[in-house]
Simulated scan of single mutants.
Amino acid sequence: MKNTQFAERLSYQRKLKGFSQEQLADRTKVTVRTIQRIEKGEVTPHLRTVKLLAAALEVDVDELLQLDDPREENIQTKWLLLMHSSPFIGFLMPFLNILCPLFIWIHKREDNSLYDVHGRAVINFQITMTLIYALAFIALLSVEGFGFLFFIAVIPYTAIVMLANVIAVIKAQKYFYPSIPFLGTRG
């Protein structure tokens, strides 16, 4: 449960009913200090406390708690997975590693800030790695020995970082891309 959402709902319902924090405390046997801390978002109340508050405010528990929709989380994970895995197409056709996640990011960034943040990270990484690949190609042609090693190392490094981020997104909707922030960062 997110403390701030519950805090806002509790405060809204309490004020809507015209109760002070003290009056609500009297009606629930929950201390004024606890109600203050809940409304500031400092603590997450126990379910028993939520039930007492809902009963005193004469509202359903659902009106105070917003339960996460597992279907919505599943859809988010699928979009994030698509966003993070679509650059693999770039190994088959040049620049699709940038264009595919760019298209998804443009399409989804307004829907959820999570898509915006992840999309920027993916695109920043892909642009960075494309530039490094171009430098590695130049090094291949101009620097003996080291140029070849640099050129050969770029693709496996890129693939490993991308794969690690796909796994991180599936497990915890987190990412880590070492990159230059061409699109900036948010979040």
Rank of each mutant, 00 (worst) to 15 (best):
A168K: 00
L57V: 01
N74E: 14
A56D: 00
A54Y: 09
V161W: 06
K17Y: 09
A25K: 08
L52D: 02
E8F: 10
A153N: 07
A121F: 07
E73R: 06
V143T: 03
R9V: 06
K174Y: 04
H118I: 03
G18A: 05
F88N: 03
I38C: 00
F6A: 12
L81F: 13
H107M: 12
F103P: 06
A168P: 14
I127M: 00
R33Q: 13
V154G: 03
F95D: 15
Q5Y: 11
L135M: 14
V30G: 01
D26W: 06
I75D: 09
S113D: 10
H84L: 03
L141G: 12
L52F: 02
A121P: 03
L67P: 07
H46P: 01
V143W: 08
T28N: 11
Q13W: 04
G184Q: 10
P178D: 02
K78I: 10
Q36L: 12
A153P: 09
L163G: 13
I180Q: 02
F103Q: 06
A25F: 01
L24M: 06
T128G: 08
D111P: 13
I132Q: 03
K2N: 15
F95M: 05
R109L: 04
I89S: 13
A56W: 05
E8Y: 13
E63H: 04
L16M: 12
Y133P: 00
I160P: 02
P178N: 06
K15H: 09
Q23D: 07
L57K: 02
I155S: 11
P181E: 00
A168F: 05
N97Q: 14
L82H: 05
V154P: 01
F151S: 07
T185N: 08
V166I: 12
L10N: 00
S11F: 09
S179R: 04
L81M: 09
P101W: 01
F146Y: 03
G184A: 05
D111F: 09
I106R: 12
Q13D: 11
T130P: 02
A136F: 00
L96N: 10
E39L: 08
R48D: 15
V122P: 00
P70D: 11
K2V: 14
K171Q: 13
Q21N: 08
V30M: 05
E22P: 10
V166S: 06
V161A: 01
Y175F: 11
I132V: 11
R71C: 14
L80D: 02
D69L: 08
W79A: 04
T31V: 05
Y133M: 10
L140S: 07
A55S: 13
G41E: 02
V143E: 01
L81H: 08
E22F: 07
A139C: 08
C100T: 14
A56L: 03
R33V: 10
F176V: 15
L135A: 05
I167F: 13
F125I: 08
L65D: 04
